[in-house]
Computed example of a mutant assay.
Amino acid sequence: MSVPGPIRRHGGRDPLRAGQNRLRLPHVMLDALAFLLDKLALFFVTCAPPPERERVYRRGDLLEVPRTLFTHFGIYVGDGRVAHLIPDILPAVTSDARRLRSKVTSARLLLGVLAKRASVRVDSVEDFAYGASVRLNTHAMERAAGSRGQPDAEAAARRAERLLGSAPYSLLWNNCEHFVTWCRYGAARSLQTEQFCQWLKSLIRDQRNAVLAGLLGLLCLACLGVSSGTALPAVFIPFTLWMAS
């Protein structure tokens, strides 16, 4: 007796297998999106120099890690641990303490920047470094302190520990550098933000940029045609730059 083969419909296609393929497609797309986010975040948070040899830090020391486009800061709280503010989307979507304590991935970090959510957490020096070198900051922040004098290292560590948990985040106005300067000196300040704003100010004040924006606007009108979507930016942006210069 011959055994009948699988029943096929729709021109010989297996409907069960087709349904499985349709269910698998969203998972493949999610995996691809997670992969792209991870690679994009790695560009911003990693740096070429390898970690330096192990050294002894004192509780309350201010540590910094050079990244590709910025420097990440933290407060050493002892036992090989660092308190730092890091963008993290997870506190906005779950309250599971076990998941929140896990290492922040690149995708979690990048989504936290976009959602303006962060957490103040304690990680090992290795996790804080994220593959880059760790430096002891002994000069830039002390100059920023001005007349406040030498900060109390133990008080800085205690302040950092009191702030553990979810926190709002802003790339310019509430970042990791604001966190450590508040812990060390009682006043939130970011030298990186100030340098960026100074560069942006010089860019706006340069009248040549207004002329360049005007030429680019005319080029867009010539290529894309005159419409409300092209004419308004082509006029408004150069006018704004010219008035601000």
Rank of each mutant, 00 (worst) to 15 (best):
P4G: 14
D14E: 09
P15Q: 07
P15W: 02
R17G: 09
A18M: 11
A18W: 11
G19R: 06
L23A: 13
H27V: 08
H27C: 14
M29G: 15
D31H: 06
A32C: 15
F35T: 14
L40I: 15
F43Y: 06
V45C: 15
T46W: 11
A48G: 09
P49I: 12
P50F: 03
P51I: 09
R53A: 15
V56R: 12
Y57E: 02
G60M: 01
D61S: 03
E64K: 08
E64M: 12
V65H: 02
T68A: 15
G80C: 14
R81T: 11
H84Q: 01
H84C: 06
L85C: 02
T94P: 02
S95V: 09
R99E: 15
R101H: 06
R101I: 04
S102P: 10
T105N: 09
R108F: 05
A115N: 14
V120H: 09
D127F: 00
F128E: 12
A129W: 00
R135Q: 11
L136F: 02
R143V: 15
G146V: 07
A155T: 11
E161S: 10
R162G: 03
L163K: 15
N175Q: 00
F179D: 05
R184E: 10
G186C: 12
L191H: 07
F196G: 08
C197N: 10
Q198V: 02
S202T: 08
L203E: 09
L203H: 05
I204L: 03
D206P: 04
G214N: 01
L215T: 00
L218Y: 03
C223R: 02
G225Y: 07
S227V: 02
L232T: 07
P233M: 06
P238D: 04
A244Y: 05
